[in-house]
Design a protein around this nucleic acid. Structure first.
Lengths: 192, 192
DNA sequence: GACAATACAGACAGATCGGTCTATTGTCAA
DNA sequence: TTGACAATAGACCGATCTGTCTGTATTGTC
């Protein structure tokens, strides 16, 4: 019975909920949430359909949970990346992080942007998560530009949001050069 | 016979091919190319399924034709918008156009970005169209920054691409303020 | 060993998808 | 008037989608 061995190995390693989230993350990010069906996620996670609906209720909730985990991880990731950088230089250092992200093998743009543009329904739970993450970014940029002591911290922070969006969206189509271009301009902006 | 009146009215006004393209444009741009099925397009265009397959062959080709027309229209639109502006000031004036676009009622981000992120297949005809349009933008930016006489026209042009992408992607989620933010930064960039 | 909880496999339903096909209708030119 | 042509309506096909359901196997606890 192949199930026996497989099941034992899996349940002792990672719970089925995390396996489903891992699989959803890989597939949804790579191909989009509409292009990937439930069955693909189940096969990738090596899980049963009942487990998915037990843990998440419906596909939309799985999508929301996938984005939720992405944002939590991204925040932790960024904060760790900037921990050793003095606050006055974090705005620019953040764009180093963006460049590294854009250069990473599996980079394919912003999962929040993608999902929001795929799911038009304004009441979809994914939209609230995307909105929350953008608020977080806006606040961090205001912190960083204030700490940097630039002339107009609020306007500069808004400009950095544009640079960030442009770096991510541009790198998706043109490659990581766009992220470097954004960093180049961020440097000019923060210096002047 | 309702068909009689309807048919006569329609065929004398706009050909069925253009009606299909108009319908596809509205629906694909508003909801995405995967979210909208053939039947929705047919109902919106008040056309028969056979007409769609007669003129476009398959859905992918309809998508490509929709994007093709979008790019042709956008180029003409932009060139007309900038016709009365001296070359040296076109780079900045272009961001006025972006602001107006972002403020328009039906603005919902960049159709090319959306479609490319929805259709992962690298061989899809839509990707070639998107690539061509980005080339066109890159060349225009180089022209305009050269005419503006800035210090480093090529780097500045690359930066403007980032600002443009950021303006469009940001305005989709946060509203047209992002386009104004991009213009603000473009002005600084072109002045310094 | 009995039991509840969890996860498995997969049939099934109902809807929708892209695409093909037949049959009908209106238009226009010979 | 006839015949070619373009457009219509819509049945139909096989595939795929989300979600439900039945039944079985494994695990940990009493």
């Amino acid at each position: 019975m192949p199930q026996k061995a497989r099941k034992r190995a899996k349940t002792s390693e990672i719970g089925v909920r995390d396996r489903l989230l891992d699989a959803a993350d890989r597939l949804f990010y790579r191909e989009g949430v509409r292009a990937v069906g439930i069955d693909r996620v189940l096969a990738e996670a090596d899980a049963a359909k009942a487990s998915l609906y037990q843990h998440f209720g419906c596909k939309d909730q799985l999508v929301a949970s996938y984005l939720e985990r992405r944002t939590v991880d991204a925040r932790a990731n960024i904060e760790a990346y900037l921990a050793d950088t003095p606050p006055s230089q974090r705005a620019l250092k953040f764009f180093d992080w963006v460049v590294e992200w854009a250069e990473s093998k599996d980079f394919r743009g912003c999962p929040l942007q993608h999902t929001v543009s795929e799911l038009t329904d304004a009441a979809h739970p994914a939209r609230a998560i995307a909105h929350g993450q953008r608020e977080w970014f806006a606040e961090r940029f205001r912190e960083w530009t204030t700490a940097a002591g630039v002339k107009d911290p609020k306007a500069t922070a808004r400009a950095l949001v544009v640079l960030f969006d442009g770096a991510v969206a541009g790198s998706e189509v043109d490659g990581p050069q766009r992220a470097s271009d954004a960093r180049w301009m961020a440097k000019k902006l923060l210096a002047g």
